[in-house]
Design a protein around this nucleic acid. Structure first.
Lengths: 135, 135, 135, 135
DNA sequence: GTGGTCTAGACCACA
DNA sequence: GTGGTCTAGACCACA
């Protein structure tokens, strides 16, 4: 469900937060949906429970998740089931800007970038998505 | 010349390294070109000199820069003046993958992403590029 | 400077947060004042650094403190040097309500409570304040 | 009869224990009085029966309540019907100290605190008492 | 020196 | 079973 990469440079708890926010925005995690338990995720990704817990806790402060004493955390019941396309686009802005900036420094054309996106789009079927960084 | 963002989450020395590598790959920083001094860059970006120095040092180890006693560091004289397009494309792979991954989680189409890139491409004239992160 | 009681039942990080907020509200911690470092506080109170860090981090999210890379955290530069008396009174409301509730259940009079406060007020000179709970 | 606040930070079973102890001390719960059943209280406050049960059990260990096979728990028959005023005052000490400590950190005067108590005293008629915490 | 992130593992409150 | 809090201690980025 989530792709966490400890080598990534981006703190694990932030990777998780980003992904939860996106899955909620797209409605893949609908309001009320229970999230995997802290322990479960921690075991699955060989990560410390506190790291997961931190991400969940911050998402709770943000209002994305709600805590339920003794029961798994759930997606908060807010807004429509999925954010409108315009808002989801906005959520991608920072990544887009970073990419455009990098591409221009590499003196690549818009066409190069679009081609690369098309190539990668096909590869990433069925959740085979990875999240890496330049390093 | 460089865009350093202390809020970015990505360590400053990495931001600098990424940017130098890209400008060298594209030939904007040609072999032999002197880089701004550590002090100069540090002052300009209100950053600790050690941070700049660390980036330069690591780029030297990588063979991208060369140290010249008493004179500013310069771009190493290696390969053609600029990397071939194919190689520069490769340098963008990680960013592309990250973007595609994020877009799919947001249930955006390839077309949305391309449109966003086109929008941002125009905006970023004249080195007004920023490098931010999702936060 | 701070009084932390691990036995208290109230989580340590919350005790610290409450106290920082109050000292900021009263102007005893003026904007720009550096706070004791995480390690310093942790050692002094024989408490884990992460516990202090958590309190500081949450206070940063609240806007009470600001982080300074590589330097101690400081009190945020916001509002007047000290909150107006009315606002500080408000900050005490929850404690007052709790006390009044307890006193009424004990069938004590307002006069009993006032007398107790007067007795304790004198005792607590010069930061000899403790923070305990009924347990 | 009882005011339980799950958001409070203070464990629910402790809130309940505190309140029972105070109502017994003041004679509002006289020796022999039956307490609401675990199930009843749990339902009324939308709380897990085990939580209520735990509080009752600990109060039994303390000697405040007694268990009666097949019948509701009752208030233990001990001492006079109500604790003398001096003892009840003592039961309030911890709350008083906490309040005085908070008030001094806020640089409020004894007069402010007394005024706040008087304001709140009137408001809390007829068991409308709440028990909250600073959060 | 500073804070940030993380692990491994304990114990608590609650369901 | 769930999440919350905490310890002891490591290593990283930055000043």
């Amino acid at each position: 469900m989530f792709v966490l990469n400890p080598q990534s440079g981006t703190p694990i708890y932030r990777q998780l937060m980003d992904q939860v926010r996106r899955l909620v925005a797209s409605g893949q995690l609908a309001p009320g949906t229970p999230l995997p338990s802290v322990r479960e995720l921690a075991l699955e990704h060989a990560v410390n429970p506190m790291t997961i817990s931190k991400a969940y806790h911050l998402l709770e402060l943000e209002g994305v998740l709600v805590r339920n004493r003794g029961k798994p955390m759930t997606v908060a019941a807010r807004s429509p089931r999925a954010a409108p396309r315009a808002q989801r686009r906005k959520q991608l802005q920072a990544d887009i800007r970073q990419l455009v900036f990098a591409a221009r420094q590499l003196e690549l054309d818009k066409e190069d970038v679009v081609a690369l996106i098309e190539e990668n789009w096909e590869d990433e079927n069925a959740g085979s998505g990875r999240q890496r960084r330049k390093t």
